[in-house]
Lab assay of single mutants.
Amino acid sequence: QTVHVKGVQYHFPNPEEAVKFALKVAKDLGGRVEFHGDEIHVE
């Protein structure tokens, strides 16, 4: 599972961890989380 944050990719073997990370980052940055297939983008 890959999380993209402002052009940087973070790889997580566990999808659940990836989602938790993405939600935390989005909250910290005041952004939103978008799901694109296997990828999660924080915009």
Rank of each mutant, 00 (worst) to 15 (best):
Q1W: 15
P15S: 13
P15N: 12
A26N: 01
V8A: 08
Y10W: 06
Y10M: 04
Y10Q: 02
N14D: 10
L23K: 12
H36S: 07
H4W: 15
D28F: 12
N14V: 05
A22N: 00
H41D: 02
R32D: 04
A26R: 01
E16Y: 10
V19C: 15
V42T: 01
V19M: 15
K20R: 12
N14H: 05
D38G: 13
R32G: 04
H4Q: 07
V3S: 00
D28W: 13
Q1R: 15
Q1H: 14
I40E: 00
K27G: 09
E16P: 04
H4I: 14
F12C: 09
E43H: 14
D38M: 11
F12Y: 02
K20F: 07
E16Q: 10
P13V: 11
T2G: 03
P15L: 15
G30C: 13
A22L: 03
F21S: 03
K20H: 07
I40C: 06
V8W: 07
E16L: 09
G30S: 06
V25W: 10
G7Y: 03
F12Q: 00
Q9K: 14
G37S: 06
V5F: 09
H36Q: 08
R32H: 11
A22K: 00
D38F: 10
R32C: 14
I40D: 00
E43L: 15
K6Y: 13
H36W: 12
Q9F: 10
V5W: 08
T2K: 07
Q1V: 15
Y10A: 01
N14P: 00
E39G: 14
E34A: 11
V19F: 14
H4K: 08
L29R: 04
F35G: 02
G7V: 02
H41C: 08
F12K: 00
L23I: 13
V33N: 01
V33W: 04
F21W: 12
L23F: 13
K24Y: 05
F35H: 05
L23V: 11
G31Y: 13
F21L: 02
V3C: 03
Y10N: 02
F35M: 10
K6N: 15
R32K: 10
H4D: 05
G7H: 07
K24M: 11
V33T: 02
R32T: 11
